[in-house]
Design a protein around this nucleic acid. Structure first.
Lengths: 134, 134, 134, 134
DNA sequence: GTGGTCTAGACCACA
DNA sequence: GTGGTCTAGACCACA
């Protein structure tokens, strides 16, 4: 039953676009699901076949995404038993920090390239967040 | 201080990567140069061949980037004479706003997908900006 | 009578000339095939490579023609699956009307520039059509 | 003074587009001016330089158009004296007929390719002409 | 096999 | 020299 649970909790909107390699987008989505706890440490993952179906991609593509995650130590395979999320909490936390840092760095760099000063950028962010809260 | 100067005036850091189509990256770079005034409205652009050489891409690739910019009205061509930046200031301003809005939206969406609340995101941004100013 | 049949069903007379860009001529031919029902709404198109071979042009040239048609909404692409004719009947009808109107307008303008009055033009058309029917 | 006259009578709207070779468009315009009597048989033509200026093209381009017209016998050069319209009325009439025939043939062919029957084409033309007269 | 991108290089019309 | 088109051919992601 826990298998079904996992599938249930996971956000099913894959939202794949064709502007970047699909296997990379899948990796990013899975990483987000790991750092946000959709998949908890030690959780068994749905089968490649199932996830491929859900994401409407070829199983080879899903397989490729998993291979890369495995290489990064985020998931591991138990022969004949399935794939599991790493139990290394440290690694997961590092990943989350790194992803946040990347997002921030990219953003600030974009704004700088567009000619906005740090002050202006901060103001714009504050305005946008206030706007949304209304 | 001259460092900042150079960044502003220079038109030469192309920094193309292979993760997304090169002609798209070129378009983005040229758009940034337009909205930040590196190229002023009405300015004549270097020839396709020169820019292709500078960016180390094939002239056809540069040509494609320009065709798209032309379709968007950001540049126009004078037969056998060269290409020019639009003089439509309105269009340029709209573009700048849109590009900033896209950057902000993407960023906030990324942070939200990583599980950060608006408050946390704001705090992180503030910390990062202060960090850099030290 | 089979002659007429063949003309209607055949998708193969490409008749490309060198007086205008080839990709434009290809677009026009494909548009004609769409508005005349040679390709029905929703039909899957032959692959770029096949059509390029049939028309004896480089696949890139065929690709370009399709990109433009796609931009106009007349065809759409399914990743790795192929290209399809739009199912938007309205769009197809509009296109047909527009193409006919363009042909008529161009013709009347040509005749006027040659110094023929409307009456003379009409008479000439009638004569030509009768001539052919004989 | 007749020189000035000719310039005066000629329709000055050159309306060159970039979709076809400019020298061909110039030839067509000059032919129209010949068959419609803007330039009468035997008329002296303005200088290449003047016409080039009027049409806003490079003199080489205008020159090329004239060379072609000369090859077709429609104009002739008197050494040191200038260029003149042929006095061969027969040739001019033939040209006019041929140009009209080409326009008609092209038009009927376009309409046929768009799937319109002769009857439909005739009706459409009649409607358009009536429409305009209102 | 399918579409998409890119390169190297040729050729054209025009100024 | 300038932009525009086209070819031949390679390589990629994906099914």
């Amino acid at each position: 039953m826990e298998g079904t649970q996992n599938i249930k909790n996971s956000k099913k909107e894959w939202q794949l676009t064709s502007d970047r390699p699909v296997f990379i987008q899948i990796m990013e989505k899975l990483k987000r699901d790991i750092v946000t706890g959709v998949y908890a440490p030690g959780d068994k993952l749905p089968s490649v076949r199932d996830l491929a179906g859900e994401a409407a991609v070829n199983p080879n593509t899903m397989q490729r995404a998993f291979s890369e995650l495995e290489r990064e130590g985020l998931v591991y395979t138990q022969r004949t038993n399935g794939r599991f999320i790493t139990e290394d909490l440290n690694l997961i936390n590092q990943l989350k920090e790194q992803m946040a840092l990347d997002a921030i760095t990219n953003f600030l760099s974009s704004m700088q390239q567009l000619g906005f000063s740090k002050k202006e950028t901060l103001t714009l962010i504050e305005e946008t967040l206030e706007e949304e809260t209304k």
